[in-house]
């Protein structure tokens, strides 16, 4: 038994890639924790480092990646080998496109049964029965018949349910869901997200939800980490983050995201584009696009500092009202 209340602790994670173009600093100084039965959303746009962060936790990065920092699962530090061993047993991951994670040559039921057998020495028949029970659990109608079907015979939503069943097969402490509903239609997305919430409540699995969709974050996460260009921009409980965002990037992103429940004359538009991570700006990475930036922003990396309890931001200008009044 470990004494830690955290299912997952990530400390000072850094990820660099050696490529022909040079060294790409994909992630720098990322730290976060997730409690059992809670969802942490990591949100940001393409290239912010949210997906590579989750792949690093799972030990799934390509060999040209250098990973620094520590990852602890239920208090146990995991090195590379530890991450591989824990994968599929103590931690599982589902992806945006379930078709690429499923083997087209095996039936859905056999794949889930194999996943169960890989970690528990049970008979094929017992594993198949468990697989069908899991299919029922993730509300696949006609579970036994669906288990005999191949991935291409299933809809996108059904495939994602199969992936969730497979992820749950070994009762993981941690489930990482990387854009799990981005490829799905909105009515199916609502079903899958509701299912993940329900399973999280029942099993106490900690969930890391990687998404670009602030609406999904609003409805399904307790904690939020906003990433920008490989670094942490802001972190807070979800209610706090939406109520009182402090990092200019979060503020801009919230203004740029069109909402069904709000008709605005104009969307806030963050000028420019994300920096080249082969040659990141010397200071705050958001400074070149930030309407609040001052000379000091270009001088050095802003410290990721607490503003309120459990609310932190990497911005020397925060809180902005005080900065603007000065």
């Amino acid at each position: 038994m470990s004494a830690t209340p955290w299912a997952l602790e990530v400390e000072d994670l850094s990820i660099t890639f050696r490529t022909d173009r040079g060294t790409l600093r994909a992630v720098e100084g990322v730290s976060f924790r997730v409690a059992p039965g809670r969802t942490l959303a990591i949100v940001g746009e393409s290239g912010c480092g949210k997906s590579v962060t989750s792949l690093a936790v799972m030990g799934l990065l390509a060999p040209n990646a250098r990973v620094g920092g520590t990852v602890r699962l239920a208090g146990q530090p995991l090195d590379d080998a530890g991450r591989r061993a824990a994968r599929g047993r103590d931690m599982a991951m589902i992806f945006q496109e379930p078709m690429t994670s499923l083997n087209p040559a095996f039936t859905a039921g056999d794949q889930v049964a194999e996943a169960i057998r890989a970690h528990e020495g049970v008979s094929l028949r017992a594993a198949t029965e468990r697989a069908i029970a899991l299919f029922e659990r993730v509300r696949i109608p006609e579970a036994a018949r669906r288990a005999r079907q191949y991935p291409h015979q299933l809809s996108g939503g059904m495939r994602q349910r199969v992936m969730i069943a497979m992820a749950l097969a070994c009762r993981p402490k941690l489930l990482i869901a990387d854009e799990p509903t981005t490829a799905l239609d909105v009515t199916v997305q609502a079903q899958i997200l509701a299912l993940l919430d329900e399973l999280k409540r029942e099993t106490g699995t900690a969930v890391v939800l990687i998404t670009h969709d602030l609406g999904v974050v609003r409805d399904h996460a307790e904690e939020v980490l906003v990433m920008y260009a490989g670094r942490m921009a802001e972190q807070a409980p979800a209610a706090r983050l939406f109520d009182r965002p402090e990092h200019p990037y979060t503020i801009g992103l919230l203004g740029a995201a069109p909402r069904l429940d709000e008709k605005r004359g104009r969307l806030a538009s963050i000028p420019g584009t994300v920096p080249d991570l082969y040659r990141p700006p010397p200071g705050c990475r958001f400074a070149p696009r930030c309407p609040f930036s001052i000379a000091a922003c270009d001088a050095g990396q802003p410290e990721f500092r607490p503003l309120e309890e459990a609310h932190r931001a990497a911005c020397i200008r925060a809180p902005l009202e005080a900065a603007l009044a000065a």
Partner: peptide
């Protein structure tokens, strides 16, 4: 109605539709 209710970001609502198209 179901399509509008399913758009995320409006607070959690019970999914109105079962199944696929």
């Amino acid at each position: 109605r179901a399509l509008l209710a399913a758009v995320p970001g409006q607070g959690q609502k019970p999914a109105m539709l079962e199944g696929d198209i």
